[in-house]
Design a protein around this nucleic acid. Structure first.
Lengths: 241, 241
DNA sequence: CGAGGTCTTGAAGACGATCAACAAACGTGG
DNA sequence: CCACGTTTGTTGATCGTCTTCAAGACCTCG
């Protein structure tokens, strides 16, 4: 089964063919979203949860004065707002960072799953728990890592998450995001992000041009970041690309 | 029913008497934990999830060089590691910040609940989602608020969370934590935390002595923090103290 | 009364923010 | 294919917040 959601859910736990059918048949039709468009609006109370089939998007909070902070980055296979099934209204927005393909899963269908399919329920619950674990690691990065370490940590995380769904070989991947957006992810200024990126380049660990990232030396990058992948709770073996 | 867990769960959603019995009967005997003692160790794979009946504790990650970052603060009624039911091993530790009374709920019992009690399952799931929402708000504080705003935000959050379980009138509460610990919560240095606290005192919004916090002017504090309580997903009316 | 922890203060310095330009890349229409 | 405008990336200079280092004051508890 090659559907990104299934691929992703199977990373969390084995699921049966019946369960696969169940969730796929609940999903609506794929929709195309342009970059910079909101996928879920802050303050809304959705009736469906959105799954990303393709592209990058992010959850963010923004201030009246225009400051913005991303609190999560999502890739193919991620539910961006599974929590909105049980937690309304949305306390943050979700925006497409690249062209995205998404599908919605109606909350009714999720309710049905929780009523009748305890195993699948646990798998979905678990996926929200992994989101939480990533939030915590970002908190650690924000609080106690240098800007350089923080950026390095994020690149390591992305490499492994993308590898897990077959979108990276663990070394290089598409990353169609501007430095301005990255600044809002890292909680830094645009100018400083630019300097940090250059420093990673100068150290020979990062090559990032035209939306393509290459980690020239993952080990060195991980060392800079004091990166420990445990929190991602990925299985030992990534799927084939 | 006056059990802190029940009080807390009822904030999330109405639960039936049968469900209350169910979860209470699953819980083990209360245990007393001294300050500074680990409640759950990083790297462990617990067979039960811990619920706080009394006291303050925190989740933290630490570095080899001694730096530490708290990623959550927990109060009476909170499950500190409900996620360990589905996500092992622990990617962080949990430590008592004050003397704590805790009970364990065996993962077997939680499994049973997810198999047979979908509604209660959703309530528990929801409680982990609120944790996630708080993580996100902390990320926003770390990334885009000044040290002063960040501290003010935390005090506002604590006032409302404690009020929700009857441990504050919304203005004052016990907060038996050192400035060193607060520094590790806020991701700041001890010295700077001290200065920020003094600034809040000078502004006449905070009085914090001997483990007792008084928010002299909640509105002013909330304004400093640009605090919006939506993310806590609390019901309109707090319970009586 | 002494000892250890906690809080407070001062001074110096680093890291990252801000302000202001400029350069390069990209997309579009002519 | 080039001209142009817009977006993105880069650089320099200055400034401010927060860190670090160091020491002293206060408090609690034996």
């Amino acid at each position: 089964m090659n559907h990104p959601l299934i691929r992703k859910l199977e990373l969390l736990a084995p699921i049966s063919p019946g369960e696969k059918d169940l969730i796929l048949s609940a999903a609506g039709l794929p929709r195309r979203i342009e970059p910079d468009r909101d996928i879920v609006r802050e303050g809304s109370s959705p009736h469906e949860s959105i799954l990303v089939l393709e592209g990058f998007c992010g959850r963010y909070a923004s201030f009246r004065d225009g400051r913005r902070q991303f609190t999560a980055l999502h890739i193919a296979g991620d539910f961006v707002d599974l929590h909105s099934f049980l937690l309304k209204p949305m306390d943050h927005g979700v925006v497409a960072l690249s062209p995205c393909t998404i599908v919605g899963v109606p909350h009714e269908a999720l309710l049905e799953i929780t009523e009748k399919h305890p195993h699948l329920t646990r798998v979905l619950w678990r996926s929200t728990l992994v989101d939480g674990a990533i939030h915590r690691q970002w908190l650690v990065s924000m609080g106690r890592r240098s800007a350089l370490g923080h950026a390095a940590h994020l690149f390591c995380e992305l490499a492994l998450r993308l590898q897990a769904v077959g979108l990276s070989d663990g070394r290089s991947f598409r990353f169609p995001v501007t430095q301005t957006e990255l600044a809002d992810v890292l909680g830094l200024s645009l100018v400083h992000v630019n300097r940090v990126i250059q420093e990673l380049r100068a150290k020979g660990v990062l090559n990032w041009r035209g939306g393509e990232v290459v980690l020239e030396d993952f080990e060195a990058m991980a060392a800079l970041a004091e990166f420990n992948p445990t929190y991602l709770h990925l299985p030992k073996q990534p799927v084939e690309a």
